[in-house]
Structure formats: structure tokens, C-alpha cells
């Protein structure tokens, strides 16, 4: 039964892979089938995942095991979750804006500290590179400092891009596009490795053409 189950699973995965890849030709019933199965199954999967890996351990079990403030504070997210369901009742649907506002506010607040600590300060520190003489290290430092400063100035919105600011912004967009080119090539290679992985599955696990 075990091997039969594995065989059926492999053939099903192979069929769905080919059905999704058939999209490269054009939209067709096989792609539609695979798409709807994928969307439906993944929606169901996430429903179960949230119920058993978020709500149950983080809310229900924690409420049962914790004591004191750690226990009763959990009533706040529980209440916000219940209030969210008020959307189903038009007369009190406005209540659902409270948990939304709470979520948005927390997200924005956390984002400020996280971005300053995680991006702004390290980037600022890493850009403080002096020129120590006429050598390649100094040239490298100069390019880096000019790149960072002009890129920041490209994203300065309080003045029109004219004059000195205009020139700095133009240099900045050149740096941005060069980095995009490098990023494009790098990511493309990663995607090709994903394709190779899927083709390997088809030719190895499904067709046994290669070991």
C-alpha cells in the first residue's frame, strides 16, 4: 500500500507539474484544473496551518498554561479576532476596523525601529569610508560613497530634480540600474536552478530516465 501510495503521488505530482508547464503554450483545461486544485488545496492548507500552528499553540494552549498577566493579556488578541468577525453583520461591521487599525498601527510602529536598526544605521556605518591615498581601495570607497549619496538624492522628493540635484539624481539612477542588472542576472540563475530541480523530478522520479 505504501509503495502504491508513493507511485500514485509521484504520478499525480508529475501530471500537475506538466499541467502547470502547459501554460507556456497557452491557457488550457489542464492548466485550469491544476490552477484550481492548487489554489483550493493551498487555501485549505493555510486554514489548517493557522488553526493548529497559530491559534491553538499561541492562544488556546498558552492561555491554559500561563498564569497572571501573561494569561489574561491573551484576551486582547482573542477579542480583536472575534471583533473581526463582525464584518458578517452589516449593522456592526464598522467594529472590524478596530482590529485592522490595531494591526496596521503595530506593523508601522515595529517597522520604524526595525528599518532604522536593520538597514539605515548599518548602511550608514558601512558607507563611512575615507580615501586613504591614491590606490584601488580608495577608488572603491569613492565609488561606494558617491553611489550611496546620489541614490539617496534620487529619492529626495521635496525639490524638483533640476540643477545639481538633477545631476546627482541622474548619477543615482545609473547606479540603481547597474545594481538592478546585477540582481537580475543573479536571480535568473537561481530560477534556472529551480527549473532544473523540477525537470530532474520529471526525468528521475517520474520517468526514471536518469538516476
Amino acid at each position: 500500500m505504501g509503495s502504491l501510495g508513493i507511485m500514485i503521488g509521484t504520478w499525480l505530482a508529475g501530471f500537475l507539474t506538466l499541467a502547470i508547464l502547459s501554460f507556456l503554450y497557452k491557457d488550457n483545461p489542464f492548466y485550469k484544473l491544476a490552477e484550481h486544485v492548487y489554489v483550493g488545496v493551498s487555501a485549505g492548507y493555510w486554514l489548517i496551518y493557522v488553526a493548529f500552528f497559530d491559534v491553538e499553540p499561541m492562544l488556546v494552549e498558552t492561555f491554559m498554561t500561563e498564569t497572571g498577566l501573561e494569561r489574561w493579556i491573551l484576551l486582547v488578541p482573542a477579542a480583536l479576532g472575534v471583533i473581526m468577525l463582525s464584518r458578517w453583520f452589516p449593522k456592526i461591521a464598522w467594529l472590524s476596523r478596530w482590529p485592522i487599525a490595531f494591526t496596521v498601527g503595530v506593523g508601522a510602529g515595529l517597522g520604524i525601529t526595525a528599518n532604522i536598526q536593520g538597514y539605515v544605521v548599518p548602511q550608514l556605518q558601512a558607507t563611512l569610508l575615507p580615501m586613504t591615498g591614491f590606490n584601488l581601495v580608495s577608488l572603491n570607497n569613492l565609488v561606494l560613497v558617491v553611489g550611496v549619496v546620489t541614490t539617496i538624492l534620487y529619492f529626495y522628493f521635496s525639490k524638483p530634480h533640476k540643477g545639481v540635484l538633477g545631476w546627482a539624481a541622474k548619477v543615482g539612477i545609473v547606479f540603481i540600474m547597474i545594481s538592478f542588472g546585477a540582481s537580475f542576472g543573479y536571480t535568473l540563475m537561481a530560477r534556472i536552478s529551480l527549473l532544473i530541480g523540477r525537470l530532474y523530478f520529471l526525468f528521475s522520479d517520474l520517468l526514471h530516465v536518469i538516476d
Binding site: 490552477e35 489554489v39 493551498s42
Partner: peptide, 9 residues
Amino acid sequence: TYDQFGYTA
């Protein structure tokens, strides 16, 4: 769906 590629499909 919250699934990345399910959503994409």
C-alpha cells in the same frame, strides 16, 4: 490563498 505560488497561479 496565502500560499505564494497558489496565489500566483
